[in-house]
Design a protein around this nucleic acid. Structure first.
Lengths: 157, 157
DNA sequence: TATAAATAAGAATGTTATTCTTAATATGGT
DNA sequence: ACCATATTAAGAATAACATTCTTATTTATA
């Protein structure tokens, strides 16, 4: 069940990754085509699930959420049912935007977006540390971000 | 320079975060307004930079990029000019979608999206370890992802 | 209270998305 | 190589939407 994307498809995907508000016509012009085939390709890419969704990306800092933090977590008890409960609770915290189960020196890696360091400490104290079976908790406070994108390089596929 | 977003603005932002392809009319209806004021608010939010961009989010796995990996890195020499060079080179790797300078047990945290573990090893060997002054390099291989979003909870702002 | 500045409504217009029909191109089997 | 079939693209036609304009309403301010 491998994908079957030709050059035109990957080009369309890569353009929509950069800016999903471009008109079909402008994409078509760039590709030397008319709107209909481009339109139908986009619809196909949506229907087949290559495109998950279209979203607006906000300026977190401007909105007042200035601090990104990563947290590595190890758990002490690893029963399957507890892991599931743990993830469910983590996912419900609005501060958490990513939660990955990982192998390596941690069991979980979280990514958070919060107002500031203080809000982060509040999160740790009033939410995270209330969860049972927490082992090691290691915080990585973001000082600056060189790159942060969802854009995938499609020259590889 | 604080933001001045009222309830309507934050509601619009939160809807556009979930789906940026919704029509102005449908948003207006949901908010009990007409299209014009909603349209003008959206344009203002764009112009003032609250909305950074509109993008299509792709299904990485379906496209063949199945593996997410985080890498914690410490550097041995910390001259300012070297750090800048380091970040520039990291940012140019197509596998890297995030690069954060952090405080804590690492200097940098990277997020990568690659085909598979093998592609990851190739990256390490042929790209990352060629960079000078690398200290500790610790990989966190994602086993599963419970949550991964860009959507920010605006009830806090 | 009077005036100015925002904000919203409703109608009008221009663009674009979307559909339909037809033509061209590619694909597979004999 | 040839035909039938399935994809893919083009162009025109339509419907929906974005965008602008004018006018009314509300809100803030001196």
């Amino acid at each position: 069940m491998q994908h079957h994307l030709d050059k035109i498809d990957t080009k369309i995907l890569s353009l929509l990754q950069q800016n999903s508000n471009r008109t079909t016509k402008s994409i078509a012009t760039e590709l030397g085509m008319t709107t209909t085939p481009v339109f139908e390709r986009i619809k196909k890419l949506e229907k087949q699930g290559y495109i998950k969704k279209y979203v607006a990306l906000l300026n977190n800092k401007k909105i007042g959420l200035k601090q990104t933090v990563f947290i590595g977590i190890t758990l002490q008890g690893h029963t399957r049912s507890y892991l599931e409960k743990f993830v469910t609770q983590i996912n419900n915290f609005p501060e958490v935007i990513e939660c990955h189960r990982v192998s390596g020196n941690f069991d979980y890696l979280l990514k958070l977006v919060v107002e500031d360091i203080e809000a982060y400490e509040t999160f740790i104290i009033t939410k995270l540390t209330l969860l049972p079976y927490l082992g090691n908790v290691q915080s990585l406070i973001t000082l600056s971000t060189g790159k942060e994108t969802n854009e995938i390089d499609l020259s590889r596929v």
